[in-house]
Design a protein around this nucleic acid. Structure first.
Lengths: 156, 156
DNA sequence: TAACATAGGCAACCACGTTGTCTATATAGT
DNA sequence: ACTATATAGACAACGTGGTTGCCTATGTTA
C-alpha cells in the first residue's frame, strides 16, 4: 500500500474512459446515418453476428433471459436493424439476422473504433497504448465474450 | 493506423476491467456485512457524502432529474443506508444523510478499492499501474464528478 | 406413441429513468 | 406588507429493460 493514489480512481477512470469512447462512437454513428442506435444495441448486434442467432441463443450469450433477449430483438426489429426469419430445419426457431442497415452499423462501428484507437495512439504513443491494452488484458477474463453487459449496471 | 490491434478491444477491456473491479468490490462488501448494496448505490452514496445533500442537489450532481434522485433516495432509505432529516433553515428541504450503516459501507468501499488497486500493483507493477492511471487521466475529462453514471447505460 | 425438452411469446411485476402537475415554503419586487 | 415568482419535494403516468411464471407449438427420445 505504498501508493498515494486512492483506489477508487481506477474504476472511475476505467468507466469514464469507456463512456468517453462509447459516446464518441455514437456521436460519429449518428453523423453517419445511425442516429437511433444505442450503446446496448451495438453489443447485441455484435453478439448476433453476421450469421444470425435465435432469441434463446442470444440470451445465453448475453447472460440474460430469453424473454429479455426477445424484447431487445423486438426493439432492434422495430428500428430496422434485424429481422426474424423462419428456420426451415426447425419450425419452432426464428433466426434473427442483421439487415443490411444493421450490418452497415456494425462495419461503421468497427471502423470508428479503429479511428478512436488511432486517436489514443497519437495522444499516448502506440507503445503506451499497447502496454495499456496488455495490462487490461492481463487483469480481465481471457474471453471477452460472455460479458453479460446488457442490464448489468441496471439490475445490480 | 499502423496497428494490428482492433479498435473495439479497447472499450471492451475498459468495461470488463471496470466490471471486474466492481464485482470484486461487491463480493467483498457482501462478506463484510453489506449484501444488499448495489453498484449504483455506491456512486450515489459517494455523491451524498458525509455532510448530506438534498434530492434536487443530488439529482444535479448525478445528472438525473430530482424525481429520479428522490426515488433512489427512497430505495437507499428503505434498506437503511440514508435517512431524511428536516432542514431547520428551510422547511421545504429535507437533508439526506448517510446513516452509520451507510457510512460504514462507504469507508469499507474505500478500503476495498485500495486493496484491489494494491492487487493490480503487484500484478502489473506500481510503475505500470501509475502509467495506466496517468494515461486514463489524460484521455478522460478532468473532473471525474459529474459523471452522470446512474442510468447512463440504461437510457442510452 | 407417449413423455420430455426446447423455442418463442404473453402477462405480471420490479427497478430506474423521464415529463407533467401539485402543494408548501422562500424570496424578490412594488 | 402583499403579490409574484422560484424552489423543494412528492405523486402520477409512462417508457424501457430486466425478471419469473406459464402456455402453446414443435422436436426429440424412450
Amino acid at each position: 500500500m505504498s501508493s498515494d493514489v486512492p483506489g477508487f480512481e481506477l474504476p472511475l477512470r476505467l468507466l469514464l474512459a469507456f463512456r468517453t469512447l462509447i459516446d464518441e462512437l455514437h456521436a460519429e454513428l449518428a453523423k453517419q446515418g445511425h442516429p437511433d442506435i444505442r450503446p446496448m444495441h451495438g453489443f447485441v448486434m455484435q453478439a448476433i453476428g453476421p450469421s444470425g442467432t435465435t432469441a434463446v441463443e442470444l440470451g445465453r450469450l448475453l447472460g440474460v433471459s430469453k424473454q429479455a433477449a426477445g424484447k431487445t430483438i423486438d426493439t432492434l426489429e422495430r428500428i430496422g436493424y434485424v429481422e426474424r426469419t423462419a428456420d426451415p430445419e426447425d419450425t419452432r426457431r426464428k433466426i434473427v439476422r442483421l439487415t443490411p442497415y444493421g450490418l452497415d452499423a456494425l462495419t461503421r462501428s468497427a471502423h470508428i473504433f479503429d479511428t478512436l484507437r488511432a486517436h489514443w495512439a497519437t495522444e499516448l504513443g502506440e507503445d503506451r497504448l499497447r502496454a495499456l491494452e496488455s495490462d487490461l488484458r492481463k487483469m480481465t477474463p481471457a474471453n471477452p465474450w460472455r460479458l453479460d453487459t446488457p442490464g448489468w449496471f441496471g439490475t445490480l
